[in-house]
Simulated scan of single mutants.
Amino acid sequence: MSSFAIAVRVFDGEAPYLQSFIDHHRRLGVDAFYPVLAPGAAPLCREIFARNGIGVHESDGQRISSVQDLIREDYVAVVDADEYLHPGLFDFLVEEKVESLSMPWRLTASLDDNFFESSQKKFFVFPQVKSIVKTSALKLLRLHESNTNGSGRRLGIAQGQHFPVQHYYLRGLDDLLLKEGGVVKRTLAQSSGRKPVNLSGNAESLDFPSRHARVAYLLKILDSVSPQADPYGMSLDRSMLDRLRANVEGDPEVAKQALRDSVVKIQRVYRNRTIRCEINAMQQLLAHDPRKISYQKRVLKLLRQDFQFRRSWLGRLEKARDSLLMPWS
């Protein structure tokens, strides 16, 4: 029988959701976890891994390649703690004798703190690649697409879209609060999601972390999507959430409201026409075998385009027309 491993980078903001991640992948048949933590960081996650009999590995910068030589299982995937592998994936790899498989994201998100455990969610598939590879052919373990040096079957997104990685991109405002590295000091988070972005206009200026734009884009997309049943059965560890919230600087509810305001303000920049075109574009791409598309670059490119448009006279005309047609939006 084939064996399977997961390499995962973790910080303490994941603690309320980590047990659910472990339980899901053990049900799938994952034999070993290789968590990579920053030295001395993520004490709550260390508790959870210890409780589950999982050893942790420390690396400056949380370099995922630091565990490559430790992996003895037949297959390995690199995922984040908010990403869940498809239940049919392992059988497919073995039956089809696959060396590597590229899988797109199946994204979901909400500003509702009860969302993670809800049975109904909205989803949007985006060709940001995650991969699973045969360890015997592994050349370099990477966050998104690991390299192989074998001569076996290397399958792209055309096949991988049947086994998308379900990405709980935002599990509520508490999740966003914990991902803002400076808000909860003990997370010691170092995150590219905090890269500053500035959109300047004559009448207004938007300053926000890049993560807020990525969230706003996805929420805008999901507004146009019908809900579906979530078969994975998520659960939230509220005791861990309470322990993290107790270390928030200031009032967490005030901080969460500020985060909501920031995301909603960015959502208003995206045009409905842009979102409709984006949904169609992704569907057309996925009908073929696309290469990886950078989620962040695409999100910010469309945001800047729509920001400039809304500053133009044509944009102001469109806004006035939309307010007359849909005064409630």
Results as ranks from 00 to 15, higher is better:
200 S>Q: 11
237 D>G: 01
232 Y>Q: 15
224 S>R: 14
227 P>H: 10
205 S>M: 11
234 M>I: 03
250 G>P: 06
241 L>R: 13
225 V>A: 02
234 M>P: 01
213 A>K: 02
204 E>P: 09
206 L>E: 02
215 V>I: 14
229 A>N: 11
229 A>W: 05
234 M>K: 01
216 A>K: 04
213 A>M: 08
222 L>N: 06
208 F>D: 00
252 P>A: 12
205 S>C: 13
235 S>Y: 02
232 Y>E: 02
203 A>F: 05
244 L>M: 11
210 S>F: 09
218 L>Y: 02
223 D>F: 00
241 L>H: 03
217 Y>I: 05
215 V>D: 03
240 M>K: 15
253 E>W: 02
213 A>L: 14
204 E>W: 12
234 M>F: 14
220 K>S: 07
223 D>V: 00
216 A>G: 06
208 F>V: 00
235 S>V: 10
213 A>R: 00
224 S>Y: 07
201 G>F: 04
204 E>L: 14
233 G>A: 06
244 L>R: 08
215 V>G: 09
224 S>K: 12
219 L>H: 06
226 S>Q: 15
204 E>G: 03
249 E>P: 03
206 L>A: 06
215 V>L: 06
202 N>L: 15
243 R>G: 04
244 L>E: 07
234 M>W: 05
234 M>E: 10
211 R>L: 07
222 L>E: 05
250 G>K: 12
250 G>Q: 11
207 D>C: 11
244 L>G: 02
244 L>H: 12
225 V>D: 03
204 E>A: 14
217 Y>M: 10
249 E>N: 13
246 A>P: 04
218 L>N: 01
218 L>F: 10
227 P>F: 13
200 S>H: 06
239 S>N: 15
219 L>A: 07
254 V>Y: 08
209 P>A: 08
252 P>D: 15
236 L>E: 06
253 E>V: 05
253 E>H: 09
220 K>Y: 02
221 I>P: 00
242 D>A: 15
211 R>A: 05
221 I>Q: 01
210 S>N: 13
224 S>C: 05
214 R>K: 02
242 D>K: 07
245 R>H: 09
211 R>I: 07
228 Q>K: 14
205 S>T: 14
223 D>M: 02
255 A>E: 11
218 L>W: 09
252 P>K: 11
253 E>L: 09
212 H>S: 12
203 A>W: 07
242 D>Q: 13
216 A>D: 00
255 A>W: 08
234 M>V: 04
244 L>A: 02
222 L>T: 13
219 L>Q: 06
204 E>D: 13
225 V>H: 04
245 R>G: 02
246 A>L: 10
251 D>P: 07
246 A>H: 10
224 S>Q: 05
206 L>S: 01
211 R>E: 04
209 P>F: 09
236 L>T: 06
247 N>A: 09
239 S>W: 11
207 D>N: 09
235 S>E: 12
249 E>G: 01
231 P>K: 09
210 S>E: 15
209 P>S: 12
202 N>Q: 04
242 D>R: 08
237 D>T: 04
245 R>T: 07
217 Y>E: 07
253 E>I: 03
244 L>W: 13
